[in-house]
Design a protein around this nucleic acid. Structure first.
Lengths: 104, 104
DNA sequence: TAGGTATTTAGAAATTTTTCTAAATACCTA
DNA sequence: TAGGTATTTAGAAAAATTTCTAAATACCTA
């Protein structure tokens, strides 16, 4: 999947707003779009980028397509950031490149 | 400061590589640049974007400028993502908009 | 001061992203 | 089937990003 796509998806304010809107419940493409001052086509473009990044699930029902948040991808990003930051609390290392092995 | 700048900074693979390189030690602009197949000017452009996003500290010494990671901004991003994900373990809510208050 | 190394700034070209309008697809209802 | 609603796709225009070369700045050494 790749972090490139995921971070790029998160880099746009419209797309972050969409994700926030989906925090507690799924919403249809139209309902999502009604919160923005842009065409449905543009909203669809943003939804597609989020979907390709793995950040959204979609369910088709009747005439609608409902989107919801894929929190597992959110967690993957958090893990990447946690590794970047380094392990501040425990002192344990989790696969980053601390110099422990080169010490002696 | 704003998440827009921070997430945009994180969205580029070159810039994520730079941050990863700075995980355990500071490096000069030149040393950072030597890891990439691009001009110093381009590296400087990327460093500037990371700096404006608050992700880097810089220290001038002699002829050099040393860059290091600002982990507090990394943590801010993690907090934003944790809020987006929702509190999976504790069940407590931390300022998101769960519907608790509208229940009765 | 003169010359050298490290880094940034300026300006332009190439690429990517964002947005729109118009048209297409899909599915539902009568 | 005909007509309607919801959403996406296509193509083009506008804006932003990334990269380069060339020049500027800054500071160090002799």
């Amino acid at each position: 999947m790749g972090f490139a796509e995921t971070f790029k998806a998160l880099a746009d304010p419209v797309r972050r707003d969409i994700l926030t809107m989906l925090r507690d419940r799924r919403m249809s493409a139209g309902e999502i779009g009604s919160h923005f001052d842009m065409t449905g086509a543009t909203v669809s473009y943003h939804l597609n980028i989020l979907k390709k990044a793995g950040l959204l699930f979609e369910e088709k029902e009747k005439n609608y397509i409902f989107y919801s948040l894929n929190t597992s991808i959110v967690e993957e990003v958090m893990v990447w950031l946690a590794d970047l930051r380094g392990n501040t609390e425990t002192g344990a290392s989790e696969g980053g490149n601390c110099d422990e092995k080169n010490k002696g």
